[in-house]
Design a protein around this nucleic acid. Structure first.
Lengths: 161, 161
DNA sequence: TCCTCCTAGTTGACATGTCAATCATATAGA
DNA sequence: TCTATATGATTGACATGTCAACTAGGAGGA
């Protein structure tokens, strides 16, 4: 049975495994798309906007260096730069020159951005509760949030390891 | 405890629930982005290309009406139309007028498209095995593929219900 | 100083996605 | 038949994402 090709599996998933995989992906897409639509409808913010505003609202002084922001939300810098241009035009954030590094820019949450984020956040959290958390309520089905965590953790360990 | 506002939960997730949610989303994003990058690198196909080619290769006569194709892969028709234009330019598919409905178009898999799909498919399935299925191998962690299925099923039931 | 290299951020070209409008053809009903 | 409406598909305008180039300013060593 031994075979020297070690790095990659040569197996393919069974039909059953493939079905589980496809359901997993499809369900994830579905819930995210529902959440995105609801966020947009109820607050006028995209999920991208929300990530940016969340990171800024949690940051010291409601401001972050552009690169730091990019790494917090795991975006490419160019993507962030384009997106900040659009958000700045809508008055959600402003960019200011950085005092300690003349190359740098600081992204600052505006009062309007903060207030829009607060409103969006309340409604978004309720949506996460309804669409995700409530699916694992005690009386419900087989699975609990603990099961979700185990699955996620197994995947993360595998991808990291 | 009773409250007449019934349709929507007023609760927000706890910090713990929110953490589970964020890990769930982030891990899903991560695995999909790895798979997409590998697919692109190894076959030159995007995940969109792959969906289209998969649907066509499973279809009767390797051809589908444009609308049917859109509904099989759950895309908007306009998205499909744009994408098919690009795929047609690369020789993966062709569009032919439909014999029974003069408005319609049939999308047909070309020989080149079929052969590229076969190659891509083999490599993609191995990637799914490695990145997803193998994470739930017997000896591994706590979670099994059954746990994934339970979680997915609970979510689906909740979203449908 | 003055090279050289590194880092921060922006920009432009292009790929892809959404939405609303359009065009041609079917289809149903007066 | 003739007209109103519905459907299949494409198109164009625009939002968003990626990639590679570019600008400008730090940082270290000869």
């Amino acid at each position: 049975m031994e075979n020297s090709q070690a790095v990659r599996s040569r197996k393919s998933p069974t039909a059953e495994e493939l079905r589980v995989w496809r359901d997993f992906v499809e369900t994830g897409d579905r819930i995210r798309s529902l959440l995105a639509a609801r966020l947009q409808a109820e607050s006028g913010l995209s999920t991208g906007d929300y990530s940016v505003l969340l990171a800024l609202s949690e940051a010291e002084g409601k401001r972050l260096r552009s690169s730091d922001l990019a790494s917090v939300i795991d975006w490419e810098r160019s993507r962030l730069s384009h997106h900040l241009g659009r958000m700045e035009a809508r008055g959600l954030v402003v960019r200011e020159p950085c005092a300690t590094d003349n190359r740098g820019a600081e992204v600052v949450l505006t009062a309007s951005g903060a207030s829009q984020f607060r409103r969006a956040s309340a409604s978004h959290l309720r949506a996460v509760q309804e669409l995700f958390v409530d699916a694992f309520a005690a009386g419900g089905g087989e699975a609990s949030l603990d099961a979700v965590e185990e699955v996620t953790e197994a995947l993360r360990a595998h991808l990291d390891g």
